[in-house]
Amino acid sequence: MSFIRTFSGDIDPEQLGFTYSHEHIICRPPYWVEKGADDLLLDDYEKSKADVADFQQLGGQSIVDATAIDYGRDVLGVAKLSEETGIQIVGTAGFNKSFLWDAKLTDSLHNIIGNYTTFGQWIEETSINDLTKHVITEVEEGLEGTRFKAGQVKFGTGYNRIIPLEEKTIRAVARAHHETKATVHSHTEAGTMALEQIEILQSEGVNLNYVSFGHMDRNPDPFYHEQVAKTGAFLSFDGIGKIKYYPESTRIDCILHLVDKGFEDQILVSGDTARKSYYKHYDHGLGLMYIIGKWVPRFIVEANERGYDGEALIQKFFVANPARCFAFKP
């Protein structure tokens, strides 16, 4: 039987419901702490909780928290928020992109991964097998020594390049996936290097049906998207609301191009809401209510105008596809 692993326990995939597939809820990334980048620190429990409550009031049921160990997770805070709101949270084991690894390890992390100075030193000096064991532990025992287990494993690469340490983490995550059956999520910087990541995953024997590639809308290239989709992988359009990159019309066009090609069962949608200025209750931003409250109705209208069944597509992107994507399949 397949299941989805949440902070509140393993559930049947049909219980996941309306889901944002890539968000950050409470986190203090050490890299941005050291840079003094306050906008990138989601560090107020009550304000994060208020935005999650907005999402819930509009019918939201689950959120995938894509915050890995190198992005300043607050495991206990997110678990408490899940318990108090009833929103189901899927946690993340693994790693993010390499430029974050210059940050110094906090005292609490020394207790988890050892006496290293930075994330980069830890990853460089630790064998792939031991990195794999670390990821497996976070899936099967708990994140950062807690009892709250990860429901997916993650890796990331930089803009238009994959450095050796990033390849090392890809291979560690791939091997952890084989051991745990947890689904794999990829961070692609500005939507680049997915095809190169795929080559590494394939060399590790990973079935791409169990992989989702993030930030595909940061590289709005329909041909590129189609090449990724042909592998069977999920494509995550998780920059909704970020008009500084592209208008929503561009994202919708890319999504409907994939639908036209028959890939509607491989599309995920979310906001990657990782700044105070994106959150309503931190800094008057669009907030977690925006996608479910404003973008979904717009998408339905545009899809219907082009001859699609907009409501059926929304059901796929936010309910049926996440239920398949994030399921452990023993």
Score class of each variant (00 low, 15 high):
residue 4 I to R: 00
residue 12 D to L: 14
residue 17 G to A: 13
residue 21 S to E: 05
residue 25 I to G: 02
residue 31 Y to E: 08
residue 33 V to L: 10
residue 34 E to T: 07
residue 35 K to R: 15
residue 45 Y to G: 02
residue 47 K to L: 07
residue 48 S to C: 12
residue 49 K to F: 04
residue 51 D to Y: 01
residue 55 F to R: 01
residue 56 Q to D: 09
residue 58 L to R: 08
residue 58 L to M: 15
residue 65 D to E: 15
residue 67 T to P: 02
residue 70 D to W: 04
residue 73 R to W: 13
residue 75 V to W: 03
residue 76 L to C: 11
residue 78 V to R: 00
residue 79 A to K: 14
residue 86 G to N: 06
residue 92 T to D: 05
residue 94 G to D: 02
residue 94 G to Y: 03
residue 98 S to D: 15
residue 100 L to P: 01
residue 101 W to G: 02
residue 102 D to W: 11
residue 103 A to S: 15
residue 105 L to Y: 07
residue 107 D to S: 15
residue 109 L to S: 05
residue 112 I to D: 07
residue 133 K to I: 10
residue 137 T to R: 12
residue 139 V to K: 01
residue 142 G to Q: 06
residue 145 G to W: 09
residue 162 I to R: 01
residue 164 P to N: 14
residue 165 L to C: 08
residue 168 K to N: 08
residue 168 K to M: 10
residue 170 I to E: 00
residue 172 A to E: 04
residue 172 A to C: 10
residue 174 A to E: 01
residue 176 A to Q: 03
residue 176 A to W: 04
residue 180 T to G: 07
residue 182 A to G: 06
residue 184 V to A: 04
residue 185 H to T: 12
residue 188 T to W: 03
residue 188 T to F: 09
residue 193 M to C: 12
residue 200 I to E: 06
residue 202 Q to M: 13
residue 203 S to Q: 14
residue 210 Y to H: 12
residue 212 S to H: 09
residue 212 S to T: 12
residue 212 S to N: 14
residue 214 G to W: 01
residue 219 N to K: 13
residue 224 Y to I: 11
residue 226 E to I: 03
residue 228 V to S: 03
residue 228 V to A: 02
residue 231 T to V: 10
residue 237 F to L: 04
residue 241 G to K: 00
residue 241 G to C: 06
residue 246 Y to I: 10
residue 248 E to S: 11
residue 248 E to V: 10
residue 250 T to R: 09
residue 252 I to A: 05
residue 255 I to F: 02
residue 261 K to L: 15
residue 263 F to A: 05
residue 269 V to L: 12
residue 275 R to I: 04
residue 281 H to D: 04
residue 281 H to G: 05
residue 286 L to I: 13
residue 291 I to G: 00
residue 294 K to E: 15
residue 294 K to T: 13
residue 296 V to G: 02
residue 297 P to I: 11
residue 298 R to P: 02
residue 300 I to P: 01
residue 307 G to C: 11
residue 308 Y to H: 13
residue 313 L to G: 00
residue 313 L to S: 04
residue 315 Q to A: 11
residue 316 K to M: 13
residue 322 P to Y: 03
residue 324 R to W: 06
residue 327 A to D: 02
residue 329 K to R: 14
